[in-house]
């Protein structure tokens, strides 16, 4: 009886429970910190650009990264799907497919099927918005500095007769607007 009393001495028990609580709380905080640093700090969104309604600028929308899915293909899928906002317009013609890609140093080489040219509506403005919605979306990735566009594996002079696609293109700030 005396032993039992000493073991379950209410004062002692309270102290032990307090210690255990503090330990559990500390553990919880540490796990939370690890969780935050592993997940929230990593950029889990991509930026895709679409045309403004007046076809003067490009504006950005954010998309969640799909886990276990190739981010480069996902960007093109999002561009194909078009904007969520009804203030913006799609820039990619029907049936365009990204066939494959290759990152050489910081230049991203994107190989498209011919639909990018054949289904394109033409025009300088149309060409600029299509090409730079692609270029700006991919150069938003931190590992990509410039983008070279190929059609069915071939280097091309231009898409529809205006822009110079013989060299890699960089992010175009002048075209981007906030709204």
């Amino acid at each position: 009886m005396a032993e039992k009393q000493s073991l379950f001495n209410p004062g002692m028990k309270r102290k032990l429970l307090a210690v255990l609580r503090i330990l559990l709380l500390t553990a919880a905080v540490v796990y939370l910190l690890i969780f935050i640093s592993n997940t929230l700090l990593v950029d889990d969104q991509i930026t895709v650009y679409f045309s403004t309604e007046d076809a003067q600028y490009l504006a950005a929308e954010q998309r969640d990264i799909i886990e276990d899915h190739d981010i480069y293909f996902q960007i093109m899928e999002e561009l194909n799907k078009g904007p969520e906002s009804d203030q913006l317009s799609a820039t990619i013609p029907d049936e365009v497919e990204l066939l494959d890609y290759d990152l050489e140093a910081d230049t991203l080489i994107l190989n498209f099927n011919l639909a990018l040219r054949e289904n394109h509506w033409g025009g300088s403005t149309g060409e600029i918005l299509t090409i730079y919605s692609i270029v700006n979306s991919y150069t938003a990735l931190k590992e990509v500095e410039s983008v070279q566009i190929l059609l069915e594996g071939q280097e091309v002079e231009t898409l529809v007769g205006h822009l110079d696609l013989s060299r890699p293109l960089m992010y175009n700030q002048e075209l981007v607007t906030d709204n």
Partner: peptide
């Protein structure tokens, strides 16, 4: 000398590059 286009039929006007 060109004429322009985009995929929005409302858009119109003149540009020089």
């Amino acid at each position: 000398i060109h004429s322009n286009a985009t995929n929005n039929r409302q858009v119109g006007g003149v540009e020089t590059y």
